[in-house]
Design a protein around this nucleic acid. Sequence first.
DNA 1: AAAGTCTATTGATCTACATCAATGACTTAA
DNA 2: TTAAGTCATTGATGTAGATCAATAGACTTT
Lengths: 190, 190
Amino acid sequence: MYDALKQTFNRIAPLSDADWAFGLPLFKYVEYKKGELILREGEVHHHSIFVIAGALRIYNFNGNKESIRNIFLENSMFNESGSYYLKKPSLFNIDAIEATKAFIMHRNDAEVLFSRSVQLATLGRRFAEYALATVVERNNELTSMDGKARYLKLLKEKPHVFQRVPQYMIASYLGITPEALSRIRKEIAG
Amino acid sequence: MYDALKQTFNRIAPLSDADWAFGLPLFKYVEYKKGELILREGEVHHHSIFVIAGALRIYNFNGNKESIRNIFLENSMFNESGSYYLKKPSLFNIDAIEATKAFIMHRNDAEVLFSRSVQLATLGRRFAEYALATVVERNNELTSMDGKARYLKLLKEKPHVFQRVPQYMIASYLGITPEALSRIRKEIAG
DNA sequence: AAAGTCTATTGATCTACATCAATGACTTAA
DNA sequence: TTAAGTCATTGATGTAGATCAATAGACTTT
C-alpha cells in the first residue's frame, strides 16, 4: 500500500524507520471518482495530495474558459501552494481527470511531521524546492516559447500524458485553444 | 550589519541564539556595482542572495530582447531556483540595477546550516514554500491577465518599484514591450 | 439503429500586442 | 554649448493566436 509513496519519498530524502512509523499513519487514503471536484476556487486548501494512481488537474477559469495549470499523474505530490502555505482562498480548482487513488495529509499534520526530525524537515524542504524549480521552469516556457515550441517540448518530455488526456486539455495546459493546437499538430504532421 | 537580515528571518522562523551564532558567519558580505553581472546564463548558481540595499534583477533573452523575470529590492532573499537547487546551468542572468549591498551564502553552507536544527530546517523550508507560492501567483498573472491588468496590479501592490526602475524594465517585467506599456499608461491617464 | 453528446478539425475573421520607424525630452561628456 | 547617448512617446503595419461558426467522426444512451 505504501510502497510507491516510500520509494518516491526515499528518492528525495531517506528517512529512518522511526520517522516512517510516525509519518505513515498521518496519511489518509482517499479515492476520487472521475470528474470529482476536490478543491473549489475560493476555498482554502488544507491538504497535500500524493497521487497513487489516476490523474488530477489544477485549473482556473479565464472568463468562462478553463485554464489548466498542471496535471498530476501517479507518484506525484502537490498542493495549491498559495492557498496551502499562505492559508489564502484558492485561485484554482482541483478535480480528477481519471478515477484516482491518493494519500492526503493535512497541513497541520505535515507541520507536526516536519518538526519531528531534521530528516523530515529536509524532506519537506526538498519538496518545496523541487516544486519551486519546476514552476519557475514552466513559467519560463510560457513566457519565452510559442505554442508550437511548448507543444514539442511537452511531446518530448511527457509523452505519456498524451495517451491519457484529451487534446483540449493538452491545449489548455499549453495555454492555447484547441483550435490552435489542432493547427499546430497539422503543421507538424504535414 | 546583520539587523535587517535577522529581522527578516525571524519573521519567517524564529531561531535560537546558538543557531544565529552558527549561521551568521556563513554569510559573506558583498557589494555589486550598478550594472554588474552576478550570474551568467549557462553557469550554475551556487549562492542564495539576501539584498541588504539596492536592486537586483533576474532575466534572460528572448532572441536579443531582455525578458526580466523578477526584481529584488532590499530585504529579499532569492536564487536562481532551477540552477541552485538542481545544479543545472542557469537559464537566466542576474545583474545589479542599482549599486547593491548583499549577503550571500553558498549552497553547501546552506545545507550544513539547514541540517543543524529543526528550527533552521524549518527556516529553509519556509523560504522555499513562500517563494513557491509567489512564483505560482506570478505565473497565474502572466497567463490569466492582460498587460493592462498586470500593470495595474503591479502599481497597486509594488508602487515603490516605479520610483526606482526605468519604465522599459517595468514593461519587460510585465511581459510586454516599452511601446505597449507607454500606450497602456496613456490610456489609463486619459 | 437512431438520437444526442463530445471532441477534433477546418475556415473566416478579429484583436492584443509586437515590430519597425521617427521624434522629442533628458542626461552626460567634452 | 554642443554632441551623443538614453528613454518615453506616437504612428504605421504585421502576426500569433483568439473567437465564431460549421462539419464530421467517435461514444453513449435509449
